[in-house]
Design a protein around this nucleic acid. Structure first.
Lengths: 200, 200
DNA sequence: GGACCGATTGTGGATTACCGCAATGGTCGC
DNA sequence: GCGACCATTGCGGTAATCCACAATCGGTCC
């Protein structure tokens, strides 16, 4: 079973409890919230999992919460549940990146399968993001000059050409180049190019 | 105005004519089809543009045509039009990659804007695909040995290590390496890595 | 059989990359 | 003022890459 929690946001307590029971019976960790505002109050970018979100609620609606989360930079996968379908809203949500949009009544197993799939996806995305953050941090540690040299190295230029371009000696290019490789944790320009292309 | 044609598929002649007139008045080239089968009979992967597709038609339906096109490997952007929304169908189409799903009645300018956007997108995608095809053709021209050497070069290995790995001399590695660079049209391993990462 | 292609190898020389060791000058923070 | 950091430079030497020229062998196709 993959890591992560299912966050259920629905103002109908019976629905919340039924869904909680359903997921727990499939071994999935659950947290429930009676309102979008409650969920939002405890929101953190570190939350791992999947959000199952009802459309219609008192106060902030499901789509409004979704928009708010997008504004906050959340990448948490979102599955909408709705009792009364509305095509423009469904299409809008999907275009904004919602994972799914499911009408009630739905098949229990279908929903849980989709949620588990979303949990797996979220887990993989977090892992990939962590790698990207590590590379970004290393890029941030480069000095301005090192960055300039790196860009020209990645453009395939010879050291002597880089020296001409920047108006410095080849030895200085070599020094910066070596610093770049050291800080980025690579030994060759190919490794560097490959590393950066994987985190674009 | 971007290149490409709007293909309108709808069994209602009045709708077809009205849409044709609308797009022509905005300077967009149009072709109309009275049925999915008619469109499919003339289909080719070289078609550039955007497909505006009615959901309900006699014979093959819009979604059925969409599925058929996906099976054929079509990347043509598709915008669905429908008089009676159906959430599961809309969500399913969006998940399969439809560009939009619009209910009638719609705002004329909205539709044309969305179609023009899709034409621009299609044009950029074709350009990118052409580049990828060119690279793929060059990769196909490599001999088996050249391919082996290339993979190890891209792994950042020294020529002498590659020679050891493959049980050949360094000179032979150099020869294959040079052939790879020549066939791929690059001068350095970095250029090669970059080229390949852009077409993954 | 002959032509062609791919894989392989060697020689010798030129170019490029890499780096230890050493040094200078400028800027910034304590 | 002092230390840390950055940018820069030079010297000398080693390692790696690149390649013209030349050649052999085996497999495939006409």
């Amino acid at each position: 079973m993959s890591s992560g929690v299912v966050y259920i946001v629905d103002d109908d307590e019976a629905i919340r409890d039924a869904l909680a029971w359903l997921f727990q019976s499939r071994g999935v960790t659950v947290e429930t919230f009676a309102s979008a505002e409650t969920f939002l109050a405890g929101w953190s970018a570190q939350r791992c999992g999947c959000l199952v979100l009802d459309i219609r609620m008192d106060g902030m609606t499901g789509p409004e919460l979704f928009d708010r989360l997008l504004d906050l930079g959340s990448c948490l996968p979102v599955i909408f549940l709705t009792g009364h379908g509305d095509v423009p809203m469904a299409v809008s949500a999907m275009k904004k990146g919602a994972r799914d949009f499911i009408e009630k009544p739905f098949n229990d197993n279908d929903l849980v399968d989709k949620v588990i799939e979303a949990l797996i996806w979220d887990s993989a995305r977090r892992e990939s993001d962590a790698g990207a953050a590590s590379v970004a941090a290393r890029l941030d540690s480069l000095t301005q000059r090192e960055r300039q040299v790196m860009d020209l190295v990645l453009a395939g230029r010879l050291n002597k050409v880089i020296a001409d371009d920047l108006g410095i000696t080849m030895r200085t290019v070599e020094v910066h180049r070596a610093h770049v490789f050291e800080k980025m944790g690579v030994r060759t320009a190919v490794e560097l190019a490959t590393m950066l292309s994987r985190t674009r």
